[in-house]
Nucleic acid binder design. Structure first.
Length: 277
DNA sequence: CTTGTGTCCTGTAGGC
DNA sequence: TGCCTACAGGACACAA
């Protein structure tokens, strides 16, 4: 569930807690969480003794830049959670723990074991991380223009929603923010991407930018399942501002029509049948 | 290349 | 009460 705004919120919360600290030891409770190197021993050896310089983010990937040209990369997938531990507490579903200088630890909990952590040389993309190398521009960056999006859509017959979820097109966008951006742009998710008019593509590019920036502003979306919370346990505050996601059967805030839900590409999709054409 | 489907993984919600 | 199934969703493997 963590998408770009949630990962960015986590990055901002963790940066001051982690920057400057040294990794003292690594404890792996579930080896399948380690995506690279293949062995737990190799993973630990690549990290121990290294200092965390700063935190970055690429799409939904959180990157801890270490000294010696190494990166520690996290992907939280659906239910991953990062937390700084100062006492003896051990979070439920803790899969990997990084003990740090300053009597604290970074705990990576992931109930569903779909999330991954990778220790790589800076800029290296091992098997399983190839998608990171092909990632498109951030929708919140100036490189993400109407022309770029139009070029991505040209000739494509897939539903526009499916292309918004393609990280090569809209990196960092997931199920929540794709539905919200399409609502703001007034476009039905089922529309085939290649048939959108230039003005619609322009509205969509602007909507992606605004909805992701709003998500960051409100520290992400915490749904009732509580899968995403900030590292300190606090909830995000964007959920009460959602226009369509998770609102099936409720009234559209703009026109009072009943919000509908359908499936596109095996993904739950929400839209207003009146506001979105 | 493009598109759609299945798989991974586990906890939870809902049906009977 | 308790079992069973469906579902959630990001990314990738794979088939058509």
């Amino acid at each position: 569930m963590p998408e770009l705004p949630e990962v960015e919120t986590i990055r901002r919360a963790l940066e001051p807690e982690l920057a400057g600290r040294t990794i003292r030891s690594v404890t792996v409770a579930r080896p399948d969480i380690v995506g690279y190197p293949a062995s737990v021993g190799g993973f630990s050896r690549a990290l121990i003794g290294r200092r965390i310089e700063r935190l970055g983010r690429t799409g939904k990937y959180l990157v801890l830049h270490l000294d010696g040209e190494r990166d520690l990369i996290f992907h939280l997938r659906l239910s991953g959670h990062l937390e700084v531990i100062t006492g003896t507490r051990k979070p439920d579903y803790e899969r990997v723990r990084f003990s740090l200088s300053g009597a604290r630890a970074l705990s990576f909990a992931e109930p569903r074991v779909l999330g991954r952590v990778y220790a790589v040389r800076s800029g290296q993309y091992p098997p399983g991380l190839t998608g990171m190398a092909r990632m498109g521009p951030e929708p919140i960056s100036t490189a993400f223009t109407c022309d770029f999006l139009a070029a991505q859509f040209r000739g494509r017959t897939a539903p526009v929603k499916s292309l918004l979820l393609d990280q090569r097109v809209c990196c960092g966008v997931g199920n929540i923010y794709s539905d919200e951006a399409l609502f703001r742009a007034g476009i039905r998710p089922q529309r085939r991407a290649g048939v959108l008019r230039k003005a619609e593509v322009g509205r969509l590019a602007a909507s992606l930018r605004s909805v992701l920036n709003d998500g960051i502003k409100w520290c992400g979306t915490t749904m009732d399942d509580g899968r995403y919370v900030m590292p300190d346990g606090a909830s995000g505050r964007f959920q009460s501002r959602l226009a369509v996601f998770g609102r099936e059967g409720e009234r559209c805030r703009k026109c009072s029509s009943i919000i509908r839900r359908s499936r596109i590409g095996n993904r739950s999709t929400h839209y207003c049948p009146n506001c979105q054409k």
